[in-house]
């Protein structure tokens, strides 16, 4: 059923987006998993993993900043690129399309606040 694979294929370790690059799209994982790492003080710090059905790179849809982390394939992975312009046009017609993006971003923010609070309390 290889012929029915959608998106672009990456191999283990391939960089899909690089911290500091400009971005005008987000990605949805069709199959496999990716690792999100942030380059701090010369070191790569893993901050999250994302798997099938999840998205990454969504910040560039809402702001015009450079990519804040590098995303690498963890094993073979396929991703679908979602263009900013296409998504913005759809959101303009149907704001509820943003529900899921906002829900996931709010969940990620919640996790992050939990983590910060945990660290501060130590």
């Amino acid at each position: 059923m290889e012929s029915g694979n959608l998106g672009k294929a990456f191999n283990d370790g391939d960089v899909i987006i690089r911290q500091g690059d400009e971005g005008d799209c987000m990605y949805v994982i069709q199959s496999g998993a990716v690792e999100v790492v942030r380059h701090v003080d010369g070191k790569d710090v893993p901050i999250a993993t994302r798997s099938e059905g999840e998205f990454f790179g969504e910040m560039s849809i809402f702001e015009r900043e450079v990519r804040m982390a590098t995303v690498r394939a963890r094993g073979p992975v396929r991703v679908i690129t979602v263009d900013k312009k296409n998504l913005m046009k759809r959101i303009q017609e149907d704001p509820s399309l943003a529900f899921r993006l906002l829900q996931t971003m709010s969940q990620r923010l919640r996790e992050l606040s939990g983590e910060v609070a945990h660290r501060k309390s130590r």
Partner: peptide, 22 residues
């Protein structure tokens, strides 16, 4: 192409068991 992207953003990814050819 635009529907595949929009569905992906909705969390609906079309699996290779349904898609006969990309």
């Amino acid at each position: 192409e635009s529907l595949v992207q929009t569905l992906a953003a909705e969390g609906i990814t079309l699996p290779p068991t349904i898609v006969e050819r990309g």
